[in-house]
């Protein structure tokens, strides 16, 4: 299952994967992923993928297992909780010009990078 706020990821994968589209920011994607991880879904991709820092891109996609495990996966919990802490630390230095306030051309590039990083994982 792909949790994303990136419309390009949705349009690329909506026929191939379950998509949970988040009408919200980067953090809201992480929080949705956290809820699912605590609901016994396993984290499949790293929530901080890419070298674009959490305060420097508006888009985020995270993959969790479609199946529900018998018990909560502790590693998944640690990684997603840590990712939210990292996000909150970075957003103290807010970069609106690289978030909602970025130009349409930049948003296009951010969407493309987010999609491509995700694709490199999904193609395996």
């Amino acid at each position: 299952m792909i949790i994303t706020n990136n419309p390009l990821v949705r349009s690329t994968y909506e026929n191939a994967h379950v998509i949970l589209f988040v009408e919200g920011n980067y953090r809201e994607v992480l929080v949705k992923a956290r809820d699912l991880v605590h609901g016994r879904h396993q984290l499949i991709t790293h929530p901080l993928m890419g070298s674009l820092k959490p305060n420097e891109t508006p888009y985020r996609s995270v993959v969790v297992s479609d199946a529900v495990l018998d018990k909560t996966d502790a590693d998944s919990v640690l990684i997603i909780e840590e990712a939210i802490l990292v996000f909150d630390r970075f957003i103290k230095t807010a970069r609106t010009d690289r978030g909602e306030g970025s130009t349409e051309k930049m948003k296009e590039d951010f969407r493309e990078i987010d999609l491509s990083l995700l694709s490199s994982a999904l193609s395996e």
Partner: peptide
């Protein structure tokens, strides 16, 4: 340093 946790 891959994105996929299983790769890690």
């Amino acid at each position: 340093e891959n994105v996929y946790l299983a790769d890690k």
